[in-house]
Amino acid sequence: MLKYALVLLAFAAPAMAEDMTYDDCVAMVDRSPATAEKKSAAWQVHGGGAAAMHCHALALYALQRYDEAARVLDALGRNRDVPAAGRSALFDEAGSAWLAADKPGQAVTSFTAALADKPNDLGLLSSRARARGLIRDWRGAESDLSAALAQDANRADLLVLRASSRWAQGNKTGAAADIVRSLEVYPDYPPALVERGKMKYSAGDLAGAKRDWQSAAARGQGRTAADAKRYLNELQSKGGK
Protein backbone atom coordinates (compact mmCIF):
# COMPACT_ATOMS: atom_id res chain seq x y z
CA MET A 1 0.00 0.00 0.00
CA LEU A 2 0.98 3.61 -0.39
CA LYS A 3 2.35 5.31 2.65
CA TYR A 4 0.58 8.49 3.60
CA ALA A 5 2.70 11.50 2.62
CA LEU A 6 2.60 13.44 5.87
CA VAL A 7 4.57 16.24 4.23
CA LEU A 8 1.27 17.45 2.83
CA LEU A 9 0.11 18.39 6.29
CA ALA A 10 2.21 21.51 5.85
CA PHE A 11 -0.39 22.77 3.40
CA ALA A 12 -2.99 25.15 4.78
CA ALA A 13 -5.81 23.49 2.90
CA PRO A 14 -9.34 24.70 3.68
CA ALA A 15 -11.66 22.27 5.37
CA MET A 16 -14.46 20.68 3.41
CA ALA A 17 -18.04 21.83 3.81
CA GLU A 18 -18.50 19.24 6.53
CA ASP A 19 -15.39 20.60 8.32
CA MET A 20 -13.43 17.55 7.22
CA THR A 21 -9.68 17.85 7.56
CA TYR A 22 -6.93 16.03 5.66
CA ASP A 23 -6.64 13.54 8.54
CA ASP A 24 -10.39 12.94 8.41
CA CYS A 25 -10.21 12.30 4.68
CA VAL A 26 -7.32 9.85 5.03
CA ALA A 27 -9.18 8.02 7.79
CA MET A 28 -12.19 7.78 5.48
CA VAL A 29 -10.01 6.07 2.85
CA ASP A 30 -9.56 3.19 5.29
CA ARG A 31 -13.25 2.99 6.13
CA SER A 32 -14.86 3.65 2.76
CA PRO A 33 -12.53 4.43 -0.14
CA ALA A 34 -15.45 4.97 -2.53
CA THR A 35 -16.90 7.68 -0.26
CA ALA A 36 -13.45 9.20 0.24
CA GLU A 37 -12.93 9.31 -3.52
CA LYS A 38 -16.15 11.26 -4.06
CA LYS A 39 -15.64 13.65 -1.16
CA SER A 40 -12.00 14.35 -1.96
CA ALA A 41 -12.93 15.07 -5.60
CA ALA A 42 -15.54 17.56 -4.39
CA TRP A 43 -13.02 19.05 -1.97
CA GLN A 44 -10.64 19.72 -4.87
CA VAL A 45 -13.37 21.65 -6.68
CA HIS A 46 -13.86 23.78 -3.57
CA GLY A 47 -10.19 24.67 -3.18
CA GLY A 48 -8.87 21.74 -1.20
CA GLY A 49 -5.54 22.05 -2.95
CA ALA A 50 -2.72 19.53 -2.58
CA ALA A 51 -4.19 17.93 0.53
CA ALA A 52 -7.43 17.10 -1.31
CA MET A 53 -5.51 15.81 -4.33
CA HIS A 54 -3.39 13.53 -2.19
CA CYS A 55 -6.37 12.11 -0.35
CA HIS A 56 -8.01 11.55 -3.73
CA ALA A 57 -4.94 9.62 -4.91
CA LEU A 58 -5.03 7.45 -1.79
CA ALA A 59 -8.69 6.69 -2.38
CA LEU A 60 -8.08 5.82 -6.02
CA TYR A 61 -5.27 3.49 -5.00
CA ALA A 62 -7.46 1.81 -2.38
CA LEU A 63 -10.05 1.28 -5.12
CA GLN A 64 -7.33 -0.37 -7.24
CA ARG A 65 -7.53 2.42 -9.80
CA TYR A 66 -3.76 2.46 -9.80
CA ASP A 67 -3.20 4.23 -13.11
CA GLU A 68 -5.37 7.18 -12.04
CA ALA A 69 -3.74 7.34 -8.62
CA ALA A 70 -0.28 7.43 -10.20
CA ARG A 71 -1.23 10.28 -12.51
CA VAL A 72 -2.55 12.37 -9.60
CA LEU A 73 0.58 11.69 -7.55
CA ASP A 74 2.88 12.59 -10.43
CA ALA A 75 0.95 15.82 -10.92
CA LEU A 76 1.35 16.62 -7.24
CA GLY A 77 5.06 15.87 -7.42
CA ARG A 78 5.42 18.45 -10.16
CA ASN A 79 3.80 21.10 -7.96
CA ARG A 80 6.68 23.46 -7.21
CA ASP A 81 4.87 24.76 -4.14
CA VAL A 82 5.50 21.39 -2.50
CA PRO A 83 8.79 21.29 -0.52
CA ALA A 84 11.56 19.18 -2.08
CA ALA A 85 11.18 16.41 0.47
CA GLY A 86 7.47 16.31 -0.23
CA ARG A 87 7.97 16.09 -3.99
CA SER A 88 10.31 13.15 -3.55
CA ALA A 89 7.79 11.31 -1.37
CA LEU A 90 5.01 11.94 -3.88
CA PHE A 91 7.04 10.69 -6.84
CA ASP A 92 7.98 7.65 -4.77
CA GLU A 93 4.28 6.93 -4.19
CA ALA A 94 3.58 7.51 -7.88
CA GLY A 95 6.22 4.94 -8.76
CA SER A 96 4.61 2.39 -6.45
CA ALA A 97 1.22 3.08 -8.02
CA TRP A 98 2.63 2.65 -11.53
CA LEU A 99 4.09 -0.70 -10.50
CA ALA A 100 0.70 -1.74 -9.14
CA ALA A 101 -0.77 -0.69 -12.51
CA ASP A 102 1.79 -2.96 -14.22
CA LYS A 103 3.48 -0.01 -15.91
CA PRO A 104 7.13 -0.28 -14.85
CA GLY A 105 8.35 2.13 -17.51
CA GLN A 106 6.33 4.94 -15.98
CA ALA A 107 7.46 3.79 -12.54
CA VAL A 108 11.09 4.27 -13.58
CA THR A 109 10.27 7.84 -14.62
CA SER A 110 8.61 8.60 -11.29
CA PHE A 111 11.37 7.03 -9.19
CA THR A 112 13.94 8.96 -11.23
CA ALA A 113 12.08 12.19 -10.44
CA ALA A 114 12.09 11.23 -6.74
CA LEU A 115 15.85 10.60 -6.87
CA ALA A 116 16.44 14.10 -8.27
CA ASP A 117 15.82 15.46 -4.77
CA LYS A 118 17.23 12.45 -2.90
CA PRO A 119 19.97 11.02 -5.14
CA ASN A 120 21.37 8.60 -2.57
CA ASP A 121 18.16 7.30 -1.06
CA LEU A 122 18.57 3.54 -0.65
CA GLY A 123 14.86 2.81 -0.84
CA LEU A 124 14.38 4.82 -4.02
CA LEU A 125 17.41 3.24 -5.67
CA SER A 126 16.07 -0.21 -4.79
CA SER A 127 12.61 0.62 -6.12
CA ARG A 128 13.94 1.97 -9.39
CA ALA A 129 16.18 -1.08 -9.77
CA ARG A 130 13.16 -3.36 -9.44
CA ALA A 131 11.23 -1.32 -11.99
CA ARG A 132 14.20 -1.34 -14.36
CA GLY A 133 14.44 -5.09 -14.02
CA LEU A 134 10.81 -5.42 -15.12
CA ILE A 135 11.61 -3.60 -18.36
CA ARG A 136 14.84 -5.60 -18.76
CA ASP A 137 17.10 -2.62 -18.27
CA TRP A 138 19.62 -4.89 -16.59
CA ARG A 139 22.54 -2.46 -16.73
CA GLY A 140 20.47 0.29 -15.14
CA ALA A 141 19.18 -2.09 -12.49
CA GLU A 142 22.70 -3.23 -11.65
CA SER A 143 23.89 0.36 -11.37
CA ASP A 144 21.10 1.25 -8.94
CA LEU A 145 21.65 -1.89 -6.88
CA SER A 146 25.40 -1.31 -6.67
CA ALA A 147 24.73 2.23 -5.42
CA ALA A 148 22.30 0.88 -2.84
CA LEU A 149 24.65 -1.89 -1.72
CA ALA A 150 27.44 0.64 -1.31
CA GLN A 151 25.34 2.01 1.54
CA ASP A 152 24.31 -1.35 3.00
CA ALA A 153 26.39 -4.32 1.83
CA ASN A 154 24.37 -6.77 3.93
CA ARG A 155 21.05 -6.54 2.09
CA ALA A 156 20.53 -10.12 0.95
CA ASP A 157 17.48 -9.15 -1.11
CA LEU A 158 19.43 -6.56 -3.09
CA LEU A 159 22.33 -8.95 -3.62
CA VAL A 160 19.92 -11.46 -5.16
CA LEU A 161 18.43 -8.80 -7.43
CA ARG A 162 21.89 -7.71 -8.57
CA ALA A 163 22.81 -11.34 -9.19
CA SER A 164 19.79 -11.64 -11.49
CA SER A 165 20.78 -8.46 -13.33
CA ARG A 166 24.36 -9.60 -13.73
CA TRP A 167 23.30 -13.06 -14.89
CA ALA A 168 21.03 -11.53 -17.52
CA GLN A 169 24.02 -9.58 -18.84
CA GLY A 170 26.17 -12.68 -19.02
CA ASN A 171 28.26 -11.86 -15.96
CA LYS A 172 28.01 -15.31 -14.41
CA THR A 173 31.01 -14.84 -12.12
CA GLY A 174 29.62 -11.64 -10.62
CA ALA A 175 26.17 -13.16 -10.28
CA ALA A 176 27.53 -16.21 -8.46
CA ALA A 177 29.54 -14.00 -6.11
CA ASP A 178 26.40 -12.05 -5.18
CA ILE A 179 24.51 -15.25 -4.42
CA VAL A 180 27.35 -16.57 -2.28
CA ARG A 181 27.41 -13.31 -0.34
CA SER A 182 23.63 -13.21 0.08
CA LEU A 183 23.67 -16.70 1.59
CA GLU A 184 26.47 -15.66 3.94
CA VAL A 185 24.32 -12.78 5.14
CA TYR A 186 21.11 -14.84 5.26
CA PRO A 187 21.71 -18.61 5.26
CA ASP A 188 19.10 -20.57 3.30
CA TYR A 189 17.51 -17.35 2.01
CA PRO A 190 14.77 -18.70 -0.31
CA PRO A 191 15.14 -16.15 -3.16
CA ALA A 192 18.89 -16.81 -3.21
CA LEU A 193 18.26 -20.54 -3.34
CA VAL A 194 15.95 -20.07 -6.33
CA GLU A 195 18.65 -18.13 -8.18
CA ARG A 196 21.40 -20.54 -7.21
CA GLY A 197 19.23 -23.40 -8.44
CA LYS A 198 18.91 -21.68 -11.81
CA MET A 199 22.68 -21.28 -11.98
CA LYS A 200 23.24 -24.93 -11.11
CA TYR A 201 20.70 -25.99 -13.71
CA SER A 202 22.47 -23.90 -16.34
CA ALA A 203 25.74 -25.61 -15.42
CA GLY A 204 24.19 -29.06 -15.78
CA ASP A 205 23.96 -29.79 -12.05
CA LEU A 206 20.35 -30.96 -12.10
CA ALA A 207 20.53 -32.67 -8.69
CA GLY A 208 21.93 -29.52 -7.09
CA ALA A 209 19.30 -27.37 -8.74
CA LYS A 210 16.57 -29.67 -7.50
CA ARG A 211 17.86 -29.51 -3.91
CA ASP A 212 17.94 -25.72 -3.94
CA TRP A 213 14.46 -25.41 -5.43
CA GLN A 214 13.03 -27.96 -3.00
CA SER A 215 14.48 -26.01 -0.09
CA ALA A 216 13.19 -22.71 -1.50
CA ALA A 217 9.72 -24.20 -2.04
CA ALA A 218 9.63 -25.46 1.56
CA ARG A 219 11.04 -22.32 3.18
CA GLY A 220 9.78 -19.57 0.89
CA GLN A 221 6.47 -17.79 0.65
CA GLY A 222 4.41 -16.17 -2.07
CA ARG A 223 6.08 -15.68 -5.42
CA THR A 224 9.38 -17.20 -4.24
CA ALA A 225 7.75 -20.50 -3.31
CA ALA A 226 5.64 -20.45 -6.49
CA ASP A 227 8.73 -19.91 -8.67
CA ALA A 228 10.59 -22.73 -6.95
CA LYS A 229 7.68 -25.12 -7.46
CA ARG A 230 7.40 -24.10 -11.11
CA TYR A 231 11.06 -24.82 -11.71
CA LEU A 232 10.70 -28.19 -9.99
CA ASN A 233 7.73 -29.06 -12.20
CA GLU A 234 9.63 -28.03 -15.30
CA LEU A 235 12.62 -30.09 -14.20
CA GLN A 236 10.41 -33.12 -13.67
CA SER A 237 8.69 -32.66 -17.04
CA LYS A 238 12.10 -32.69 -18.71
CA GLY A 239 13.03 -35.94 -17.03
CA GLY A 240 14.97 -34.53 -14.10
CA LYS A 241 14.81 -36.71 -11.01
Results as ranks from 00 to 15, higher is better:
A147E: 13
P190R: 07
A17N: 14
D137W: 06
E142W: 04
D157G: 00
M16R: 13
G123F: 04
W213P: 00
W138G: 09
V26D: 04
A163C: 10
F111G: 01
G174T: 10
A192M: 09
T21H: 09
K210G: 04
P104V: 08
A207P: 04
R211T: 03
A75P: 00
A168R: 03
N171I: 11
Q214A: 02
A207W: 01
W167T: 00
Y231F: 15
S126I: 00
Y4K: 02
A17M: 15
R132Q: 09
A226V: 14
G239L: 15
M199P: 03
P187Y: 05
A34N: 07
S96W: 08
S182H: 00
M20K: 09
L232S: 02
N120H: 11
T173D: 12
E195D: 08
N154E: 12
A89D: 10
R181F: 12
R80P: 07
L183I: 11
V29L: 05
L134A: 12
K241I: 01
A101Y: 03
G220M: 10
N154V: 04
G49A: 10
S126L: 01
L9Y: 05
D157K: 01
N120K: 14
A75V: 00
I135L: 07
A141N: 07
P190G: 09
A94C: 06
R219K: 15
K3F: 13
T112M: 12
G123L: 09
L60V: 14
D74V: 09
L73Y: 13
V45K: 12
A216P: 01
V72Q: 07
W138I: 10
L193G: 01
Q169C: 05
F111Q: 01
D19P: 03
D92K: 14
A27H: 05
A84R: 15
G86C: 10
L73C: 11
A62T: 12
S165K: 02
V160Q: 03
R78Y: 13
T35S: 11
E37Q: 13
A226L: 14
S96G: 12
N79W: 07
V160N: 03
G220W: 05
D144Y: 08
A148D: 06
K241E: 04
T112R: 06
P14V: 04
K103M: 14
P187N: 02
H46C: 13
S96M: 13
L90I: 11
A150L: 11
V7Q: 13
